[in-house]
Simulated scan of single mutants.
Amino acid sequence: MQRYPMTVEGELALQEELKELKTVKRPAVIAAIAEAREHGDLKENAEYHSAREQQGFIEGRIQDIEAKLSMAQVINVLDIPATGKVIFGTTVTLLNIETEQSVVYKIVGDDEADVKSNKISVNSPIARGLIGKEEGDTVGITTPGGVVEYEIEMVEHL
């Protein structure tokens, strides 16, 4: 069975979402279905059909989260000795050599990735190019606009 890497924070976020779905959203949609049934003819009852559709989404998401958690390999970067190398869970500060702009990324699991929060998937081209490199190394990352050269300024175990 294949295991999927996940940070401690990612596991906690999924567990919280699962709890919310099971204890709040699922009971609410069940109540909405029951209320819509009381309105009579189900064929033309938009409230009923909407609630059933919402129930399907909730149940699907619950199954998805439970599957992800069962196959997760939770990695706590704080348990790994800091070597200065880029590994899963580290936060990396990069300097674009051409534009001299810095960017900070945290390397996380696929389900945790969120570019707006500067969290990139361990399977992304940037992360794959960075894994195993050290502070001071120069890395060429292939992007749709061509190869971009970055210097690794800092690797943090946060």
Rank of each mutant, 00 (worst) to 15 (best):
I30C: 01
A51Q: 09
G109C: 04
S70L: 05
T90R: 00
G56T: 09
T93C: 06
V103N: 02
V103K: 05
A67Y: 11
A31S: 15
L95F: 12
M71V: 06
E98I: 13
I65V: 06
L78S: 11
D41H: 14
G56L: 07
V29K: 00
R52G: 07
A36E: 07
G40R: 04
K68Q: 14
I87F: 04
I58D: 01
A34S: 13
L78E: 13
L95Q: 12
A82Y: 14
G56I: 09
Q101T: 04
Y48L: 02
I75Q: 03
I30Y: 06
T93F: 10
N96Y: 07
I65E: 01
Q55R: 13
L42E: 13
Q101R: 04
E38C: 15
A82I: 04
S102V: 10
V103M: 08
L69M: 07
D114K: 13
V115W: 08
G56H: 05
E59A: 05
L69Q: 04
V92G: 11
A113N: 08
N96G: 05
D110I: 15
S70C: 00
P81M: 03
Q55I: 12
G109R: 04
L69H: 07
A82G: 11
D41L: 06
E38A: 14
V104L: 13
E44N: 13
I62K: 07
L95D: 04
V29S: 00
E66Q: 14
I65D: 11
E98P: 08
G60Y: 07
V29C: 00
A46I: 13
A82Q: 11
N96E: 11
K68E: 13
H39C: 09
I80C: 09
E112H: 08
T90H: 00
V108T: 13
K43S: 12
I80G: 02
S70M: 01
F88I: 12
L78Y: 09
N45M: 10
E98N: 14
I58R: 01
E59Q: 10
D114F: 12
L94H: 04
E35I: 05
L78H: 10
I97D: 10
E100H: 11
N76C: 03
D41M: 07
A32I: 02
K116Q: 15
R37D: 11
G109A: 01
V108W: 09
I33G: 02
N45L: 01
T99R: 01
Q54W: 11
A67C: 06
K106C: 01
R61I: 05
H49L: 04
Y48M: 03
V103G: 00
A32Q: 10
I80A: 04
G60C: 06
E66F: 10
K68L: 10
H49R: 08
A82W: 12
H39V: 12
R52Y: 09
G89L: 10
E35P: 02
G89I: 14
V103P: 01
M71C: 07
A72N: 06
D110V: 12
N118P: 02
E66P: 00
D64C: 11
I80W: 05
K106W: 00
A113H: 06
V77W: 02
L69Y: 08
Q55Y: 14
I107M: 00
I30G: 02
T91I: 14
N118R: 00
